[in-house]
Design a binder for these strands. Structure first.
Lengths: 349, 349
DNA sequence: TTCGATCATGGAAGCGCTTCCATGACAGGG
DNA sequence: CCCTGTCATGGAAGCGCTTCCATGATCGAA
């Protein structure tokens, strides 16, 4: 067993043991074609016997490839990361990276200090690329991304400008789906709870919602802003009800806020969907467990993460993947059912 | 502006510009005392002008210190990471590391492949230390941790054995708190929903719960296992009700499961707390928003993460922090209120 | 048989930094 | 004024790996 405090073996020791030059050993290990079968095999055995694993730092220094990418979550508010949305994205990213030999460096940049750290990471070449989530209006991360020469992939568009590489859910289309559904089910007095106004996702969802409403000849009674939290949804809903006690439907730009809206309705003695229909956005894991189960626009969050990672790897490897828009679709549940026949209330489109 | 594709400046260039030797430059940058004020200042200026940032890979190779630690989340089930619990831990870890110059490498090791990756990370010396969360019974990660020479800190005890360094919430004490509370409030027919039986946290919570119940002279009607998910809690509650339709209280070893239990009760037409009192464990962000708001044993999840990180850094720096048990305490809300006077129903102990 | 062409081979030069060690300047005590 | 101790200084040797390049062996074509 010898859990000895022995140093890790080095390439030289492997080479010595295999009776070949260090160069040959390196080649054999890296599957370079210019090695004879015999040496290749000898090296393989030596590696095996010594339990050799190449030191990644040394390799990184020689190849100028670090073997790690950063996932930076921008936020002025630490708990934003606690949002299941980010966990899901991270999961997606991780699941893709698992198939590569890249490590995932997680950076929660909610303080100025965090931004500064990212700057240093990039300047110190600690990573081969960067994924940026949820960049807000004047977020300094956005600027950082512009300055670095490293590949950067955006998750969700920034408010201004279009980055070279991004993957974005079809927020606008999703907003439209919500509006069409409510219109189709006969709602007339419709309001909306949007997210932070400096988040492109909020803006695009509202935009799509407005478009489709207009097309259906329906007015948008009012819009109140939340912050994607349950609590934010609660109070936005209260404000909406105060101004428009007679509204019969509300679209929230995020499931968390939709859950908050449901709570407020319940507290006010209003029933969903009989009195007010509620549609959310995201289709988080908790949506089906809401009371009543939440009708919501589904966006493929885990795929978002996975595609960001895939895209970044492509760029790092010198390929040019285009950018990507992921489709959204409506998941109908009880908080805003389809109107009459209620037949195919599972998944509408 | 010159967003030129110029190479990053190297230490040699800084030295040249400052008119000192590379050695002196290195010393100045690393605050080595053996440098004159004059040179120190000259180097500072050169660094400034060139925008020099030391290449961390090169530094790592020379110092044999990578400047990164791994947070590995063990799980056979990918979505476990989506549990807000882990997000919160991660947040705590990150908040501490932010004050150091260590990077956080996140490893979601839910597949055999993930385990293999961790093995390689350790062998390839890609990190200076390791934090391990939620190690289950026969988890291979546990074995890995034993074999590596790198510092390892456990978050939550493993099922068998006691690692050298760990931080663990006082699960047993928390279980006791729950039992005492239910006993004190006059409940008699008490059941429990536990977590996976190969998780030490589950076992300890149940153990504490049993102890205090026995001490109070109350029987434990039944125990059903869930898996810390809402769905698991739902079905466990159903099984409990089937076997003991007359139970009047249930303690769930996790908030997710408690929420599930509440749902089942609601569906069965039972009221909480009038018919059945429900106590959870964790005090997740969603606990106060449950219906009814959940009485639960609070564990300081973010601190758990922060303390793990602090501990790991200590070990890496050659200090020996002891291990740590974090206190839990009861947060009383409506799902299991205190009995009569209902006066201090805010935070009991 | 001869002559390139082909290719396995290993020496050596890095990658960019830290740090050991030898050197010399300088200050203060005798 | 000399000697020893102190300390700033920079040359050079790594850290462990990749890769350029020169060398020599091998082989088939001429």
């Amino acid at each position: 067993m010898q859990a000895s405090p022995r140093r890790q073996p080095t390439l030289d020791e492997v080479a010595a043991r295999a009776g070949v030059s260090r160069t040959a050993a390196s080649r054999a290990i890296n599957d370079d074609p210019h090695v004879s079968q015999a040496k290749r095999e000898a090296v393989r055995r030596a590696v095996q016997e010594l339990g050799y694993v190449p030191n990644s730092t040394a390799r990184a220094l020689a190849t100028r490839r670090v073997g790690a990418v950063v996932l930076a979550v921008s936020s002025d508010e630490p708990t934003l990361f606690a949002d299941p949305f980010f966990a899901e994205v991270t999961l997606g990213v991780s699941s893709f990276l698992e198939q590569t030999d890249l490590e995932l460096i997680l950076l929660l940049a909610h303080t100025p200090r965090g931004t500064e750290r990212l700057r240093r990471i990039l300047a110190a070449r600690r990573a081969d690329g960067l994924m940026l989530m949820a960049v807000r209006g004047e977020d300094p991360l956005g600027r950082l991304a512009e300055q670095t020469e490293l590949p950067v992939v955006f998750g969700g568009l920034p408010l201004h400008g279009t980055p070279r590489w991004y993957v974005d859910p079809d927020n606008r289309g999703g907003g439209r789906l919500a509006a069409e559904h409510l219109a189709r089910s006969g709602r007339q007095r419709i309001a909306m709870i949007t997210g932070q106004v400096d988040l492109q996702a909020s803006v695009a969802r509202e935009q799509g919602f407005r478009e489709a409403l207009t097309l259906a000849g329906l007015p948008l009674l009012a819009v109140e802003a939340g912050d994607f939290t349950l609590r934010g949804g609660e109070s936005a809903m209260e404000r909406l009800l105060a101004a428009h006690p007679d509204l019969d439907a509300v679209f929230a730009a995020g499931d968390g806020m939709a859950l908050g809206a449901l709570r407020t309705l319940r507290h006010r003695g209003l029933r969903a969907p009989q009195d007010v229909a509620v549609v959310g956005f995201d289709d988080l894991a908790s949506a089906p467990y809401a009371d009543p189960p939440l009708t919501t626009v589904r966006q493929p969050v885990r795929s978002l993460g996975r595609e960001m990672a895939r895209m970044l790897v492509d760029v790092i490897d010198g390929r040019d993947p285009g950018s990507l828009i992921l489709p959204t679709r409506l998941t109908v549940r009880e908080s805003a059912p389809t109107p009459a026949p209620r037949a195919d209330a599972g998944q509408a489109r």
